[in-house]
Every structure is written in C-alpha cells, then in structure tokens.
Design a binder for these strands. Sequence first.
DNA 1: ATAAACTCTATAATAACTATAGAGTCAATC
DNA 2: GATTGACTCTATAGTTATTATAGAGTTTAT
Lengths: 136, 136
Amino acid sequence: MIKIGELSKVTGCSVQTIRHYEKEHLIASVERSEGNFRLYDEAAVEQLLFIKHCRSLDLSLPEIRQLLALNRSPGAQCDDVNRMMDRHIEQVEARIQELTKLNEQLRMLRRSCSNRRTVEQCGILRNLSATPVSSG
Amino acid sequence: MIKIGELSKVTGCSVQTIRHYEKEHLIASVERSEGNFRLYDEAAVEQLLFIKHCRSLDLSLPEIRQLLALNRSPGAQCDDVNRMMDRHIEQVEARIQELTKLNEQLRMLRRSCSNRRTVEQCGILRNLSATPVSSG
DNA sequence: ATAAACTCTATAATAACTATAGAGTCAATC
DNA sequence: GATTGACTCTATAGTTATTATAGAGTTTAT
C-alpha cells in the first residue's frame, strides 16, 4: 500500500491531478490510513496509467470514464468503444485541417512584413485590419 | 451611433463577447446613452473586426492587446509584431505535429479492434492498458 | 399602461487541471 | 517532550475565452 505522493511518482501524475480524478470518479475512493491518508494498491497504479495513456491520446475525462465502465463489464459489445474512437479520430483530423489552413494564413501574413519597418508601414497590421478571410 | 446589439450583428461577435472585450481592455469604454446603453461608432466596428480577424488566427487576447497598442503608436518599429507572429506560427506548427502523431496512434489503436467483439477481446482496451507510448 | 425586445451588472459555468491557504499527520532529532 | 521537515488533508480560487444566467432597468410599439 502506497500513499498519494508515491503513486504520483510512480505514475507521473501530480498529486492534485490524482485527487481531481477521484473527485471526478475516474478512480474510486480508496481506503484511508488511521491519519486519513489515501492508500493505494497495484490495481490503482494500473488504472491511473490507463487514464494517463488515454489522456496522452487527448481523450476527455468523460470519454475515459466511459471506457473504464466498459472495461468493468467485459461481456459487453465493444461497438461503443469503436464509435467513440472513430468520433475522436474525426475530431483530431478536423482540428489538423483547421490548423493547417491557419498556418498558411499566418505564413502569408508574416511574409507581408520584413523587419525594420515602422508600424505604419507594417503589412501585418495593415492586413489584419482588412476584411477577415471568409472561413474564419 | 449604434447600440451593442447592432454592433453584434454587424461584426458577428456576441453581445457578451463585446462586453468581455471591453472588460479586458481590448476595446475602450465608450460613451453611454441617457439610459446607460453603450453607443458605438464606425471606428469601434473596425476595431472589433480587427480583433475578430486576429481571433480567427488563434491569437490570444493578450497578443491582440499588444498588436492594438502597436497599432496606436505608428512610429514604433514593427519587430515586435514580427516576433510575435513568428512565435505564434511556431506554436501552431508544433501543435500540428503533435496532433499528426496523435492521429497515427489513434488509427493504429482503432485498427486493433473490429466490431462485434466483446469488450474482453477488445484490442483497443487491451492496448490502452499497456504501457503508454514514450512521447506522451 | 403594458408588453416585447433590448440593455445593464454581476456571477457562475465550461475543461482539466494548477496553485494556494490553513490545518492535520508522521518520523526523526534535540 | 518539543520541534522540525516532509508529507497529507480539505476547500477554494485561478487559468482561457467565452457562454449562460438572474434580476433589474430602458426603449419602443401598441
């Protein structure tokens, strides 16, 4: 049995984050010591690493909660998992597209000003003042 | 002189957003009518469109505040503007890289499960339980 | 006079943490 | 036994850029 500081070290999640996950019901409330300190076992380490892995994939806490619930009912069909992943992948790809477009606009804007000019002549500011591009 | 609802329509910014920008000093406090309603002129429309354009390029409110300040002192060198843009472009490109990597991982994970299996056999959940990838 | 549409301020919610205050616990040292 | 330091506890506020709400006042039209 380890205390929260140790769990934090082992998993790389901050102490506050662990307590936050408990409050959000991503990890169950655990045993306490006599002095009211949280005590974790190996299973808690595993679950926290699972959560961390999901977070590294940008899954939201509600999404992770859903995955954990599915994980707890092994007989269920995993269509739900797949649907969630598909939706998530779509979102990520949409965001990549957005940012790619954004990047082009920024680079174009940046090219409109070379250093050592005064703000008055600055192409960037002039262009920002012009009508925004349609797609926002 | 137009009221805030009209300004909202013209610029496409919500009424609350406009008030928020005022509180954050992106737009100056304006004249009020007898009944304490904000009254805007053409310059306010221009400035709000400038802000909106900047936001569409994902510039933060503090960044926009800085641009507006530069805009007000036309004699200043625009190196600062350029530095900000360069930093911003870097950030956007870093985020694109991150998301692209993320997308690959998600697709790989997704391939590990075909529908109509039970959660017990689900490759996605099994893989999420395994050690996270190094780069977070 | 009243209703509808608008505006005002102030406050809370959003996501996923991070940071802080103020108090309690525990092990070791003086 | 008292104190120090490292740790933990709860509760609360802050982060970003809005959005949403409550409760009140204003304007316009009927």
